[in-house]
Amino acid sequence: MADKGTEVHEELDYHKYKKKEEMKRQVITFALMIVFTIIAFGMVVSGLDKLFIIPIILVLAAVQVGFQLYYFMHMSHKGHEMPALMLYGGVFIAFLTVLTMLVLIWW
């Protein structure tokens, strides 16, 4: 029993350490997201060409969302295979829907 107690304790410490490490990464992610946001807003304010800005801010948004999903929502962890499958399923339909509304509404 005592043996098991220390084992549990060590395991706890290990997990605590790992969580702390992860939390550090989360903060870095957050800083990057803030930077991306500022870049996006800055580019729009700068008055560069539209065709240049739009793809870049869309990519920045996509990367930010990736950070949210994989770091903040822990999709990079084990046990997220089905969530990822269904989320990407949704993203696929979402892509088709938005594309349709952009090009197929017959003006």
């Binding site: 997220h80 969530p83 269904m86 989320l87 949704g90 979402a94 829907t97």
Partner: peptide
């Protein structure tokens, strides 16, 4: 999570 997949659509 599945619900969020639907929310995406």
């Amino acid at each position: 999570w599945f619900f969020l997949g639907g929310e995406t659509v």
